[in-house]
Write a protein that binds this DNA or RNA. Structure first.
Length: 282
DNA sequence: CGGAGTGTTAGTCG
DNA sequence: CCGACTAACACTCC
């Protein structure tokens, strides 16, 4: 799943669900999915759940954080008696018994509830960090697309030297965070800019429009709870986001561009599927 | 059944 | 510094 809107959705749900819960045990079913010292975590209480870029930050105390990245297929599900809630990449794990075949880590809380980290492809991770480690890993990240820190002046300074295609540039986390493949395609369509243009060739006016488009699209996707493309699973209650109903280009190959009516084309750029309108995206 | 494709991002190499 | 490419992995689709 997750691009920034999906991660934000998971963070909001997790914050409601696990803040103030006391960790009684952590069960690691796949050693690559968890890095940390479990003995330091047992007995501690979750005091907040935050987000930076697509990284979820479960705050234990001022110098102890559990950073977690869902990558392509991670999901968190809280099981409290018979009640389940959570978010992430949708899968049939939601309706199956937990732990499932894809459960990698289980947090046990003192009140008897359990938080399952499922991750089919095992790209995701949970890493225990000190404050210093957290600051180090966040220092490499550009500003979040939806934050005021992402200004025209900043982005211009980042792009004016670069010759890579603009689509790849806006997906680079060291430049700005929160724009993945879906939202990169849609933002460029909204701003009427071709994804293949060299970053440095974008004019001042185009760049201003692109920033507005990125912020608009990502904020709208957050409001809609993210995007769920796994057609198989969108029916599971409470699971799917609904941005896919508003998507401008992604997955719409051969359909009409909402702006000019031409047919949306799919090409490959930097190894990623790239959807765009060859007519109105200049 | 084999091979391609998948929403992410580190890391390497030139 | 810049950019191209690949690996990490499991599953679905054609």
């Amino acid at each position: 799943m997750p691009e920034l809107p999906e991660v934000e959705t998971v963070v909001r749900k997790l914050r409601n669900l696990i803040v103030d819960k006391k960790i009684s045990n952590i069960e690691v079913l796949n050693s690559k999915s968890f890095t940390g010292d479990i003995s330091k975590l047992i007995g501690s209480t979750v005091i907040d759940v935050r987000r930076r870029a697509k990284i979820i930050n479960i705050v234990i105390n001022d110098d102890l954080y559990l950073l977690t990245h869902l990558k392509m297929t991670g999901q968190y599900i809280l099981q409290d008696g018979t009640i389940r809630a959570g978010g992430g990449h949708p899968s049939s794990d939601w309706v199956n018994n937990l732990p499932s075949r894809h459960t990698r880590v289980v947090f046990h809380f003192q009140d008897g509830s359990k938080l399952f980290f499922n991750d089919m492809r095992k790209f995701g991770w949970i890493r225990q960090n000190t404050k210093q480690q957290l600051e180090q890993s966040f220092a490499k990240l550009g500003p979040d697309v939806i934050e005021p820190e992402l200004t025209y002046e900043y982005l211009k300074s980042q792009l004016q030297r670069r010759t890579i295609p603009i689509k790849q540039a806006i997906m680079m986390n060291e430049i700005l965070c929160g724009v993945g493949n879906i939202y990169a395609c849609d933002s460029l369509n909204d701003a009427k800019i071709s994804p293949f243009r060299p970053a440095k060739s974008i004019s001042d006016l185009e760049l201003k429009n692109l920033i507005l488009s990125m912020k608009k699209i990502v904020n709208m996707a957050i409001d809609k709870g993210g995007t769920t493309f796994d057609g198989m699973y969108v029916d599971v209650d409470g699971l799917a986001g609904s941005y896919q109903d508003s998507v401008l280009t992604y997955g719409r190959e051969g359909k009409n561009c909402y702006n000019c009516g031409s047919l949306i084309k799919k090409d490959k750029l930097g190894g990623r599927g790239t959807y765009y309108c060859p007519t109105c995206q200049k």
